[in-house]
Nucleic acid binder design. Structure first.
Lengths: 226, 226
DNA sequence: GAGTGGTCTAGACCACGAG
DNA sequence: TCGTGGTCTAGACCACTCA
């Protein structure tokens, strides 16, 4: 029988993990410095850092350069469904930054408008408490906003979501305060009205440790023959 | 102005990256050994390995313990839509392993059957050529198979997909031959017939570097009022 | 300036693959 | 057995945070 010796970093990680999950180490609490931890576990600093990196990808700790490492406050698991996160969850609030720009390249194709068409970008950052939760970049043809001030009432008649999994970009990693090794759900959503006109295109970034996306199939009607 | 010096591992990674993407290094080709590469770039072996780790998460190289590192043959990007991958793509073939088991815990809840109900598990591994592409674990109540041999003709009337992003488990990593740091799309799909009976539950694992999932909303009919 | 995490070095030693 | 990648050491040096 082959008795595989677990790597030191794994045993250290699992030791800290149980201390966290059993509540022996509490959310928000500060970990000892990496030197002290390395001394305590009798390993070199790189191996201790490898152990911490594991915990970081599991979303258990947060690293702060120059300060220390902290036990992470677990965020509520929310569900993205039909374009919104767990129907307007009370603890959520959203900050929006509006930018004017012009359609170009892939964005113009998504929105089915010629390049150069004026657009408005809404950069939405969803917060839970003071912690960033997820983010969305929403693009809307500008004339649709000006002629129809309550453009959000344009209930989309059709649409699609294209979903993939990837690691965050460095920029997403810092604005969402997630490690570069935490997988995110990247969703591109396009909705159009009954005339086939595209109302909005959105790029969503939903960290995998705190979000599901739910899609339902209601095949009660016969299939379309378009 | 702050001129940030890029890390050595990043400059090495981007150098190798351009060699790969420009075709200077071809798919299937063997890389020089890590010692030689380290000597060539005048860095220590750990930093060179960090550079290679970056390329690995991007799906550009494949590491083989004891042999060498190889340029990866890029897999076709497929789309999961309505439960299947890019309607039966010609280059795909599927190996199936069947197992008999009993419903328990979360699985019983998903299938809406009492614990202990006999089930059949189909472990499907989708291959593109000789390379594993993605995998699915499909669970079906066994009586549904015996009474209705062509159970796959039971077109589901309703269903849902719950999608999230995560890193692969060590087991998934080895069977799919993907690095532990390549994000996967984890989909749980449950479909039921017109009587509300659950026909099947499936756990899908779709590596993010080669799969999208597409969900369409056809809201042409009025909303349901259950 | 003191304390901290981030990157890197120059090795050692083990595990794996193939002849 | 040889060449290879995987893990680990015991430091050095820099960058960041905060008093």
């Amino acid at each position: 029988m082959v008795t595989t010796v677990p790597f030191r970093r794994d045993t250290i990680a699992s030791d800290l993990r149980t201390q966290i999950t059993t509540g022996h180490l509490k959310p928000g609490e500060r970990l000892p410095s990496e030197l002290k931890l390395a001394a305590h576990y009798k390993v070199s600093t790189p191996t201790l850092r490898n152990a911490l990196a594991l915990l970081q990808t599991e979303g258990l700790i947060e690293k702060h350069h120059g300060k220390s490492n902290y036990i992470r406050r677990p965020l509520r698991r929310l569900t993205y469904t039909g374009g919104i996160l767990t129907p307007t969850h009370p603890a959520l609030h959203v900050t929006v930054r509006t930018t004017q720009l012009q359609a170009h390249g892939p964005l113009a194709i998504l929105l089915k408008v010629p390049p150069g068409t004026p657009l408005t970008e809404f950069l939405q950052i969803v917060h839970e408490g003071e912690f960033p939760h997820s983010l969305a970049r929403i693009y809307v043809p500008r004339d649709l906003i000006s002629t129809e001030p309550r453009w959000c009432d344009h209930r989309p008649a059709e649409g699609w979501d294209k979903v993939t999994a990837r690691l965050p970009t460095p920029e997403e990693s810092s604005t969402l305060r997630i490690p570069l090794t935490l997988a995110v759900l990247a969703i591109t959503r396009v909705s159009s009205d009954e005339t086939g006109r595209v109302i909005e295109a959105a790029h969503l970034v939903l960290p995998g440790d705190r979000t599901d996306a739910l899609f339902t199939i209601n095949d009660t009607t016969e299939e379309e023959s378009t």
